[in-house]
Simulated assay, not measured.
Amino acid sequence: MSAPPLLRAWRVGKSFGTHRALEDVTLEVARGEVVCLIGPSGSGKTTFLRCVNQLERYDAGGLWIGGELLGFREAGGRLHPLPEREIARQRRSTGMVFQRFNLFPHMTALENVIEGPIRALRRPRAEAVAEARRLLDRVGLFNRQDYYPAALSGGQQQRVAIARALAMRPELMLFDEPTSALDPELVGEVLGAMRDLARSGSTMLVVTHELGFAREVGNRIVFMDAGRVVESGPSQALLTSPQEERTRNFLSAVLG
């Protein structure tokens, strides 16, 4: 029997007022798998990531990480929203890297990385510092640990953000267009850090417009449009031989 997926989404829906941002989104991510979400702006990719990280509450279907239902508990045949404390506990299973780096400007790179483990996980400071230095070294920033964000390039700040997310020891790493705010010459260093993560066996769900990265690193690509999953398949196959006309039109426009 195959191992159960780390992430399971079943018919997930989400509305903002009268706008239906997600509709019947069903997909799975296995442990150690890298899945890339692609699609036009407004297709629901970021909203789906925010539902997985519980920054938004989905209003239909279900999301499970490691078999645990996210955001709700079942009692008396009905689902009841979890209190914020339980949501915070569940959120620790995911680490999210945003488009913007969101580093604390008054803290050094090292201080940014240790903040979560010390405050949220109650780890001893010496242990958190040792792991933060290891993670900063892993993303190529060991010699920048005492620098403040203002003294770092955009690519360096995003790599600090990756180290900060990893410091919480998440089961699933979420990336929301992590290179979109970077100058073109800085994109490669962030994608390089993400490649290293993938090679180490990290489970990753990546919203990206970098189709070369998706082809090289992604095990699977999921194409979304209008809040729905249009097509999903192995990266190389989907990019070279898409089955759906909407996917073909999108890739033709993007790839020329």
Rank of each mutant, 00 (worst) to 15 (best):
C51K: 03
V52E: 04
V52L: 03
N53W: 05
Q54I: 07
L55M: 14
R57N: 14
R57Y: 10
Y58G: 01
D59N: 12
A60W: 05
A60D: 11
G61N: 08
G62S: 14
L63W: 00
L63V: 01
W64P: 02
W64V: 11
W64E: 13
G66C: 01
E68V: 11
L69N: 03
L70N: 04
G71T: 02
G71N: 08
E74T: 10
E74V: 11
A75H: 13
G76P: 05
G77H: 00
G77C: 02
R78K: 10
R78P: 05
R78V: 09
R78G: 07
L79M: 10
H80I: 13
L82V: 00
P83I: 00
P83N: 00
P83V: 00
P83D: 03
R85Q: 08
R85Y: 02
E86H: 02
E86N: 01
I87C: 01
I87R: 02
I87N: 00
Q90I: 03
R91M: 08
R91C: 05
R92P: 12
R92E: 05
S93I: 09
S93A: 09
T94L: 09
T94K: 02
G95I: 00
G95C: 09
M96A: 01
M96W: 02
V97S: 08
Q99S: 14
R100C: 13
F101D: 03
F101G: 00
N102L: 14
H106M: 12
H106F: 15
M107Y: 08
M107V: 04
T108V: 10
A109T: 02
E111H: 04
V113G: 04
V113S: 03
G116M: 05
G116R: 06
G116K: 08
R119T: 09
L121H: 04
L121R: 15
R123Q: 15
P124W: 10
R125Y: 06
A126R: 15
E127V: 10
E127M: 04
A128F: 08
V129T: 05
A130E: 07
E131M: 12
E131A: 05
A132Q: 14
A132S: 12
A132G: 13
A132Y: 02
R133L: 07
R133W: 12
L135A: 04
L135G: 14
D137G: 13
D137A: 13
R138N: 10
R138G: 04
R138Q: 15
R138A: 13
V139N: 04
F142V: 10
N143A: 14
N143T: 08
R144D: 13
D146R: 15
Y147F: 15
Y148L: 09
P149N: 01
P149A: 05
A150S: 13
A150R: 15
A150E: 15
A151G: 07
A151L: 09
S153V: 04
S153T: 11
G154K: 04
G154W: 00
G154D: 08
G155Q: 07
G155H: 11
Q156W: 07
Q156L: 15
Q156P: 12
Q157I: 03
Q157E: 07
Q158C: 08
R159F: 08
R159G: 06
A161R: 02
A161I: 04
I162P: 02
A163Y: 09
A163D: 06
R164N: 06
A167Y: 01
L172P: 01
M173S: 07
M173W: 09
L174V: 00
L174A: 01
F175K: 00
